[in-house]
Design a protein around this nucleic acid. Structure first.
Lengths: 348, 348
DNA sequence: GCATTTCATTAAACCGGTTTAATGCTTGGA
DNA sequence: TCCAAGCATTAAACCGGTTTAATGAAATGC
């Protein structure tokens, strides 16, 4: 590949001039510009990305940091990614997906500064090593999801209002008459799970429910299939406690597992069991049988906002820490209804 | 951020030595290594990615080239991406998603060499400018999907056997007794659409069907929603020609649109209309009502193979052009059956 | 008409690493 | 004991761009 030196020589000017022609950072006479461009064309020259990045101290690359171990993109991430990408597209940024195993990254010969100008970090955990790691390299950082309290005032983030949202949807189910809940929550170490649990608890406490009338279970591991978790857990819990009339599920995929379990058990939705799901972002949930009631998190907008926030910061327009709350909205379809009144009394 | 120079000074050795300690490319005495590492720790030093890439002429970044304009990831791409990422993860490569508008990239000041060591190119079109562009920069290239004939022997690619696959599924529908088809194909400028069309045509010709008994329509634009296209087109075509008994649809999302249209028209699936879909990779299609019959393309494996091929090439183990065919398999569920025998005769 | 400003251009330094060729020191063999 | 080989280390060149300070020519002011 031809270098700037070659072009300079071929067009009889200095490196600096060629540089200016390409970067347009300094005026060059029309005549010289044309001569340089012609030579560049001849030699099929393009400025080298890395040399330029090194000198400019900027790459126009945004990093997407997903948790390391064998991560799989889900429906939710898909929308989120589309949001991030659309902003990158508009702003001329490339997106780098960080996918390196911890063992790889911890090897001495692979420990380097990130190639990106800034990072978007997904699914923050309670004490997230990634945050401290990135913070020490002082590259701009935006989270999607709330960080743990210690960082809350030091990092920009984008999130839904998980606490009050969950409180509201629980109230909705309570008003329908439900008194026995199974809450299939996100993995326990993630802040989103904590927030949803506290919103849920606020509502059930307010309604004066006893501890025995609800059960919060956490998806064991991000690697596990949501569908399987929904299916198996529902099967087990519903057998153990037939009094349950409402299940709140982490995602629509998980809800599908709940549907399947209900089918196996011969339990009708919503007649005998109401199902509610977060993350109603897939095109499929309206087509469930029955159509799924849930809350739309607007993953795409979350992605857009996060990318916008980060790029704002990178371009120097934003100095302070900023928090963006993306509103959610409930979409009521047909998977939740009043429970069949059980005249035989409440067993625990 | 501390540089290698700082560390060298602090530990009383030369830059070269520090470099060797970190890159492990040359032995350094244990004593010196420890001294350097201690100094690096003190200064919170990490080698600079860009500088290293520049000197090494390698970035360990794989590029994913999606077509430029306002691309949205679909369910299919999701699986594909997961496949690519899993290989990157194992091999210590980062993934860069190329998302720059053409207008941006064509600006002189933004025309640079790619930051990636190699590229995976998605959805090749008949005469794909991206291919010639990348080829001239002679960076290694792997396609997912068949390139047009001119490149077929010059580029490695991964693909399904679209022609014979489509022929087979058409034969399957023919054997069920269908004689009037609507084929909702991928966008016309993509090679996959050409291949599927020719497989379809081979089967219907073989069966001696006249031109009036089938209709191939192409999704107008990659930006359009598959769901909407499936819905609106089915509505229109089925009204115009009620003789149609089978619809072959590009994706499961599109099939969902077909379902919806059938619902609106009061047409039962599979009783009055059989629906078949490519790309049965989503977790949702088994849960359609009725469960969708389709062909699994194994998008994740396509992604894995492509990434593997590319990385093999990058590490120098592979010199020649290679072609990988990922087998497909039909998953027969309940959306296709024999058409209701129409004793009233065939209208065109 | 002369001093001054403006302007395009350039040589050299710089970004932060890696690598080559040279250096001096220790080993090993005869 | 002497010379060759092996070894860790270093100074300097290099990767391919950008940028600063200096230069000389043209344009401007009075």
């Amino acid at each position: 590949m031809a270098t700037i030196e070659d072009v300079a020589r071929a067009s009889g000017v200095s490196k600096g001039t060629v540089s200016s022609v390409f970067s347009k950072k300094r005026p060059i006479s029309k005549e010289v510009t044309e001569r340089v461009l012609a030579a560049a064309q001849d030699l099929n020259y393009k400025p080298n990305y890395w040399a330029r990045s090194l000198a400019n101290k900027s790459t126009r690359i945004v990093g997407l940091n997903i948790q390391g171990e064998k991560f799989k993109f889900s429906q939710f991430h898909l929308s989120l990614l589309n949001g991030v990408l659309s902003v990158c597209y508009e702003q001329g940024y490339r997106l780098l997906v960080n996918t390196l195993s911890h063992t790889y990254q911890n090897q001495l010969e692979h420990r380097v500064t990130g190639p990106a100008d800034g990072e978007i970090l997904l699914n923050p955990e309670i004490r997230d090593e990634r945050i401290t790691g990135l913070l020490s390299g002082d590259i701009p950082l935006v989270l999607i999801g709330r960080p743990s309290a210690e960082f809350e005032n030091h990092i920009s983030y984008v999130d839904n209002d998980n606490v009050s949202m969950t409180e509201q949807i629980t109230l909705y189910l309570l008003e329908l008459g439900h008194r026995n809940f199974l809450f299939l929550n996100a993995p326990a170490d993630r802040t989103v799970a904590v927030d949803r649990a506290s919103g849920f608890l606020a509502a059930v406490m307010q309604a004066g429910l006893s501890q025995s009338s609800y059960n919060i279970l956490y998806k064991p591991d991000p690697d596990n299939s949501s569908f399987d978790f929904g299916y198996k857990t529902t099967l087990r819990e519903l057998r153990a406690n037939p009094a349950i009339t409402a299940i709140i599920s982490d995602t629509d995929t998980m809800a599908l597992g709940v549907y399947k379990a209900a089918g196996v058990l011969g339990i009708s939705i919503p007649g005998q069991l109401s199902v509610f799901a977060f993350s109603d972002d897939s095109i499929f949930s309206p087509e469930f049988t029955p159509p799924l009631t849930g809350v739309r998190l607007h993953a795409e907008q979350l992605g857009r906002e996060a990318a916008t926030l980060l790029i704002e910061r990178l371009s120097g327009n934003l100095k302070t820490v900023k928090r963006t709350i993306v509103p959610t909205d409930m979409v009521i379809r047909s998977s939740c209804s009043a429970p069949i009144t059980n005249l035989g009394g409440n067993q625990s």
